[in-house]
């Protein structure tokens, strides 16, 4: 390869690379440095493990991590099961499936923040829609966002509503690539629908499921917009999640250094998920 081609290649890459480094790699490194050298919003001249020591002692963080993992452990599988069901329905010969596809997909294109305002109304204690419905069957109503036992689950419901239709798209794409001969063969064997799903459809959707699973896990740690409207992490941190906690520390409590240590923790979680994803994708597709 001639040297001019080399130079050309680097020139083409330069603008994107500069911004990528400036807003991804540089901040990652600076976060790590700050987590060791920072104290509050100031810098110390000597490295200290103070921020990490606080990390281990912080009881709110334990609550936040527990919430984050529970949040992921419930929203991810439920969204995936719903997404598969949606994809099967939309891919079937059912009348009106175009309308259904739109209905399922609509939450994906709506801003989380705006629709959270509508959900806030559903959840509100006195006049809220859900409690009105409960009132119809004689139930006294639930404090959906104010009860520490319930608040996190109320957030999960909205997350599932937002995500399932998005994941449906990937399953829909996968379903359309399944060889119809397999279904013809199954029909000849007189296999019932459940068997067909269990023995043909589900195994062939497995690569998609793995792909969606990792993406959904990543999303579960990134999706906190609705907290700003619905609970602000409360009551008493019962519905606080890691990214929101980072935001609070940095921009409400102005403890930049501790926020940096928390970000490092978040990065570690993401890297583990990323390694998982590369392992998965490597098996699934061959990058040329």
């Amino acid at each position: 390869m001639q040297p001019t081609r080399q130079i050309q290649a680097w020139l083409l890459l330069l603008p994107a690379l500069c911004l990528l480094v400036a807003f991804t790699h540089y901040p990652v490194i600076k976060t790590i440095v700050r987590s060791f050298f920072g104290f509050g919003t100031r810098w110390e001249s000597q490295a200290t493990l103070e921020n990490y020591r606080y990390l281990l002692e912080d009881e709110v963080l334990m609550q936040v991590l527990y919430n984050s993992f529970l949040y992921a452990a419930i929203t991810v599988p439920v969204s995936i099961v719903l997404a598969i069901a949606m994809a099967l329905w939309v891919n079937s010969k059912m009348a009106g499936k175009g309308i259904l596809r739109t209905a399922y997909f609509t939450p994906t294109v709506l801003p989380m923040i705006s629709v959270a305002n509508i959900w806030l109304f559903f959840y509100s204690p006195e006049i809220g829609l859900l409690n009105k419905l409960l009132g119809l069957v004689g139930h006294g109503g639930i404090n959906w966002l104010g009860d520490p036992e319930v608040a996190l689950y109320s957030l999960m419901a909205m997350t599932i509503w937002k995500e399932a239709g998005f994941f449906m798209i990937f399953y829909l794409a996968a379903l359309q690539t399944i060889d119809s001969n397999l279904y013809h063969a199954a029909a000849i064997e007189n296999a019932n629908k459940w068997t067909v799903f269990r023995r043909i459809t589900f195994p062939l959707l497995m690569p998609t499921t793995l792909f969606v699973l990792v993406n959904a896990l990543l999303n579960a740690f990134k999706l906190v917009d609705h907290l700003f409207i619905l609970t602000k992490g409360g009551p008493n941190n019962a519905s606080n999640l890691l990214l929101y906690y980072i935001f609070e520390n940095a921009f409400s409590f102005f403890d930049t250094a501790y926020a940096a240590a928390l970000t490092v923790l978040m990065l570690v979680i993401l890297v583990v998920l990323a390694l998982l994803q590369f392992g998965v994708i490597e098996k699934r597709v061959h990058y040329r």
């Binding site: 700050r34 930049t256 940096a260 970000t263």
Partner: peptide
């Protein structure tokens, strides 16, 4: 793809 800018709000704000 993994480390989206949202996660680095603290340092990006400083920048």
């Amino acid at each position: 793809l993994m480390v989206v800018p949202e996660i680095l709000i603290v340092e990006n704000y400083q920048t």
